[in-house]
């Protein structure tokens, strides 16, 4: 599904963030990318969204070279990917309902579809009672669940969760990981980045370990490595 072909990224001429990354992620996988801060995890996943551009190499989504896409095609590709960030990146001046409705409007869903699907997905992440709350009126865990709801609303083929538990306590972290596992069980590919090895221990799927911009381990079943 995703193929990184000798991808390197250099910032300011001498800061090597990604160093010759070659990586294949197949459809339906749950891939955790673990590493310390500055290991290059976020830069790696940003490239799948063309939110960052490699200095060398390229990234393919299926057979599409992401960096050769025109603006309209890139927008269409992004609609096939759901994204969850550490800092939630919710639209601050929109309610929980509107945040999700916006993602649906972006892909051209009708008002009827929005009116029926948004309350449903909010119930799924246990935010039914917070439908008309603004993000600043919600806890960190609630905001992250809202971000997940937004990411899954259009039934994407891929979910990218970049440090989704970084700002959460242990209980909320567990809940978020369980939600992501459920999403993966339903057939969606999930890429999770985290600096917390404890988070991925409970998942038991493929784990890629990064250090200083390089992949130093790629364990197909993390339970064998613990």
């Amino acid at each position: 599904m995703i193929y990184f072909n000798n991808v390197s990224k250099v910032y300011n001429k001498d800061s090597l963030v990604l160093n010759d990354i070659t990586l294949t992620i197949t459809s339906g996988e749950f891939v955790s990318i673990v590493g310390h801060s500055g290991a290059g995890k976020t830069t790696l996943v940003k490239m799948i969204l063309a939110d960052d551009v490699p200095t060398e190499g390229t990234v393919f989504f299926e057979s599409i070279n992401i960096f050769k896409l025109k603006d309209g095609d890139l927008t269409k590709l992004r609609r096939r990917i759901g994204v969850v960030f550490q800092d939630f990146k919710l639209l601050g001046n929109k309610t929980a309902y509107e945040n999700i409705a916006f993602a649906m409007e972006a892909v051209g869903k009708t008002n009827e579809e929005i009116e029926s699907d948004v309350p449903h997905v909010l119930e799924l992440v246990d935010l039914g009672s917070k439908m008309f709350n603004f993000p600043h009126q919600m806890s960190g865990g609630e905001q992250q669940r809202l971000a997940i709801a937004r990411a899954i609303i259009n039934q994407p083929e891929l979910i990218i969760a970049d440090e989704p538990t970084g700002n959460l306590d242990a209980i909320n972290t567990y809940e978020i990981v369980q939600i992501l596992k459920k999403i993966n069980d339903l057939g969606t590919t999930v890429i999770l980045t985290t600096h917390n090895r404890g988070v991925i221990d409970s998942i038991g799927k493929r784990v890629i370990t990064m250090e200083k911009g390089r992949i130093i381990r790629d364990d197909k079943d993390s339970k064998n490595t613990i």
């Binding site: 992004r78 639209l91 916006f102 892909v107 259009n154």
Partner: peptide, 16 residues
Amino acid sequence: KEEIGVMRLVGASKMR
């Protein structure tokens, strides 16, 4: 500006 970036990442067109 951050919200604009988020809108683009969730697949909103430039006009939207």
